[in-house]
Simulated scan of single mutants.
Amino acid sequence: TRSTRSRRMMIESDRELSAIVQEIWDNDVNRLKPGKDYRISLQGKAGDSMGDNESNDRAGLPLFTFVDENIFKKETFLAFISLLDNYESDTGEPEIVTPEEVAENHRFLDAIIQTRAMKIAHKHLVEKQLSPQDDTEFKEQLYRIWFELYARKGSSRPDSSGFEHVFVGETRGGRTVIGFHNWIQLYIQEKLGHIDYKGYSVTANSPQPDENKHILALQFSWKNGIKPKGSIFIGVSPEFEFALYTLSFLTSPNERVKVQFSFYDVEIVCHHYNQKHIGTTFPVLLRYRNPQ
């Protein structure tokens, strides 16, 4: 039947995608080493209910106990961090994009397309005829996917972008945090005192988190809003996430794709907005595996 065939095709493509992701992972030279370049403190399992009451807080201490900030001087990290303060977090507030911010977006894209991680992703996308081979045109495609503004649910004006949602985080109605799937932003906001880490999240279908692994589901509050459950990579470079999410978006938009690499079986959730932009994307850890 057709569904079996498409399912089989799906499994095939996952295998192919996994091989590319593994190659990107192996070439993520800027990735931090757990326990050496950074340390996190998982503490308790977060409560299921999400009130404001303190009894829900299963973590008295911050998530990050140490990060070697020298890493932030690397070009892609530097360019990435310069983008984090360019956004108005409340959805419904129109984004005003200044010429300086446009230049910063371009500087970030210039930096990441030079990395091995992004070059591997680009090569694969060109082979699949999903991206232009020319670097300038590829950058234009990335700009459209990640930085072009669109109106999120309930807003009439362009108030959001894929980059803002995924990497910076947004608030809805002031009370709910949406998006926010990046560890660098989490670390910086926690250091500024805007984040209160409430504990890790774990379900019957996910393994117990591990402080020395690179994926974590967690609960936290940001400013006045709450993120009941978020899932993030920890310690990876901006180019790794950018390469992985762009690949997932272009090869299977609005899908969940399962990939296997290193120690991880992961589902990458990737929703598009109008077929053109990333709505949201994040990793869901399914299990730890023994690397081959």
Rank of each mutant, 00 (worst) to 15 (best):
Asp52Trp: 05
Phe64Arg: 02
Phe66Pro: 04
Ala59Leu: 00
Asp68Tyr: 06
Val102Met: 13
Glu93Trp: 07
Val67Ser: 00
Arg58Leu: 05
Pro99Glu: 09
Lys74Phe: 09
Ala59Val: 01
Thr76Ala: 13
Gly60Phe: 09
Asn86Ala: 11
Val67Gln: 02
Thr91Asn: 08
Asn70Met: 10
Glu95Arg: 05
Ser89Gln: 12
Leu78Asp: 15
Gly60Pro: 13
Asp90Glu: 15
Gly60Tyr: 05
Val102Phe: 06
Glu100Trp: 01
Leu61Thr: 09
Glu104Phe: 06
Ile96Leu: 06
Phe80Asn: 01
Leu84Ser: 11
Tyr87Asn: 10
Glu54Met: 12
Tyr87Glu: 04
Ala59Cys: 10
Ala79Gly: 09
Lys74Asn: 13
Phe72Cys: 01
Glu93His: 12
Leu78Gln: 15
Pro99Met: 07
Asn86Asp: 12
Ser55Ala: 11
Asp57Lys: 01
Asn53Pro: 02
Asn56Thr: 03
Pro62Asn: 09
Leu84Trp: 05
Phe66Asp: 04
Glu54Ala: 08
Thr76Met: 12
Asn53Gln: 09
Phe77Gln: 04
Asp85His: 08
Glu54Ile: 10
Glu88Ser: 09
Thr91Gln: 11
Glu75Met: 06
Glu95Asp: 11
Val67Arg: 02
Asp57Gly: 01
Pro62Ala: 06
Thr76Lys: 07
Leu83Asp: 06
Ile81Ala: 00
Thr98Pro: 01
Phe72Met: 03
